[in-house]
Amino acid sequence: MRTPDRAAPTLLADLGGTNVRFALADTGRALPLMDDSVRRYRVKDYGSLAEAIRQYFSDTGHEAPRAVIAAAGRVSEGETVKVTNNPWLVAAHTLQAELGMESVHLVNDFAAQAMAVPLLAHEQLSAVGPQPLPTLGQRETQSFVVMGPGTGLGVAGLLRRQGHWTVLETEGGHAGFAAHTAEDVEILHRLNERFGRVSNERMICGNGLVNLYLALADIAGQPAEEYTPEDITARAETGSDPLCVRTVETLAGIFGSVAGDLVLSL
């Protein structure tokens, strides 16, 4: 039986619907992440996660005996995950056998994001709004919402009780959208016609930008271009297309409203 090599790095993977990002961590260091090891690959270019990992090892010249996979989907008993908006089905033991690794561990991506929050230094945080930044881990009772848009909308909770951290895994991104303004109502009406039930994720994600753009174009009576999320973002950044600017502003406003609702819920 091979003796585990604890000095060897651990492979980290952030697996979403569009991209998979890899990095290596040396757990013997004060700052484990090996910064020059980070690479991004498009999911559609590979038939499986194992294939993408082999490409990463080939590109970097590194190997790793262990892996921790943070995946955008519900992890079933720590063994399998079907990633939302991604054709891959990932099973920990199968991946471990395919790659000849000592261990492979699966975790929900936003559970992993929540686990990272207590590790953040104060100078790594930015305040949004008038309230001062909290000091992490210095109070017995603290509650946090952890959320972020990508291919979908990830949501997790993080609780500190009696000095211990607990992560709450959720599917909060699929909660129903609550309209707060007259424009929200018009957007909801158009998305409801297209999709039926409208979740927060229909707007707060990459494809959500396109959904909002099409809805706002219809509300304004303007012809809509066949833009991708990247097109909309690029035109908003340059200010070359006022409708794209409005789309990004609208997404940010809805994101803020949803964040506030989640804070009230938790």
Score class of each variant (00 low, 15 high):
residue 68 V to H: 05
residue 127 A to Y: 00
residue 137 G to E: 10
residue 204 I to F: 13
residue 5 D to V: 02
residue 220 A to N: 07
residue 26 D to N: 13
residue 53 I to G: 04
residue 80 T to S: 14
residue 38 V to Y: 00
residue 6 R to C: 08
residue 16 G to Y: 03
residue 120 L to T: 03
residue 153 L to M: 11
residue 120 L to V: 07
residue 258 V to L: 13
residue 256 G to S: 04
residue 85 N to F: 13
residue 43 V to H: 03
residue 88 W to N: 11
residue 155 V to P: 08
residue 258 V to C: 12
residue 108 N to D: 11
residue 48 S to F: 03
residue 110 F to N: 07
residue 115 M to A: 15
residue 209 L to F: 09
residue 115 M to L: 14
residue 74 R to A: 13
residue 106 L to H: 05
residue 112 A to G: 04
residue 35 D to W: 04
residue 31 L to H: 10
residue 48 S to W: 03
residue 213 Y to G: 10
residue 238 T to V: 05
residue 230 E to P: 02
residue 210 V to T: 14
residue 179 A to N: 05
residue 223 P to Y: 03
residue 133 L to V: 05
residue 186 E to N: 08
residue 202 R to A: 15
residue 191 L to Q: 06
residue 124 Q to P: 00
residue 148 G to F: 00
residue 209 L to A: 09
residue 226 E to A: 15
residue 23 A to R: 04
residue 196 G to W: 01
residue 136 L to R: 05
residue 194 R to L: 13
residue 116 A to R: 03
residue 238 T to H: 06
residue 217 A to C: 14
residue 12 L to V: 07
residue 233 T to I: 14
residue 42 R to Y: 09
residue 72 A to R: 02
residue 172 G to Y: 09
residue 47 G to C: 02
residue 112 A to F: 04
residue 69 I to K: 01
residue 55 Q to T: 14
residue 195 F to N: 10
residue 181 T to G: 07
residue 241 D to S: 04
residue 132 P to R: 10
residue 5 D to T: 02
residue 161 R to M: 08
residue 40 R to S: 14
residue 54 R to K: 11
residue 61 G to R: 01
residue 241 D to Q: 01
residue 112 A to H: 00
residue 25 A to P: 08
residue 82 K to R: 15
residue 179 A to Q: 08
residue 7 A to I: 00
residue 181 T to M: 04
residue 230 E to A: 15
residue 198 V to M: 07
residue 59 D to C: 07
residue 94 T to D: 14
residue 11 L to G: 01
residue 1 M to K: 12
residue 90 V to N: 08
residue 144 F to M: 06
residue 193 E to H: 10
residue 80 T to Y: 06
residue 183 E to T: 11
residue 25 A to V: 07
residue 235 R to T: 02
residue 156 A to Y: 09
residue 82 K to D: 15
residue 110 F to P: 01
residue 10 T to V: 15
residue 190 R to K: 07
residue 15 L to A: 12
residue 168 L to E: 11
residue 11 L to Q: 08
residue 260 G to N: 08
residue 214 L to C: 09
residue 196 G to R: 01
residue 85 N to M: 14
residue 123 E to Y: 00
residue 111 A to D: 04
residue 167 V to D: 06
residue 135 T to I: 13
residue 199 S to N: 14
residue 231 D to I: 06
residue 198 V to T: 07
residue 164 H to G: 05
residue 68 V to C: 10
residue 137 G to L: 10
residue 225 E to L: 12
residue 63 E to K: 15
residue 147 M to C: 11
residue 24 L to G: 12
residue 22 F to R: 08
residue 85 N to C: 05
residue 60 T to I: 04
residue 48 S to P: 02
residue 73 G to Y: 05
residue 101 M to R: 02
residue 36 D to L: 07
residue 56 Y to T: 06
residue 37 S to H: 05
residue 238 T to D: 13
residue 34 M to I: 15
residue 126 S to H: 03
residue 160 R to K: 12
residue 17 G to H: 09
residue 220 A to D: 14
residue 121 A to H: 01
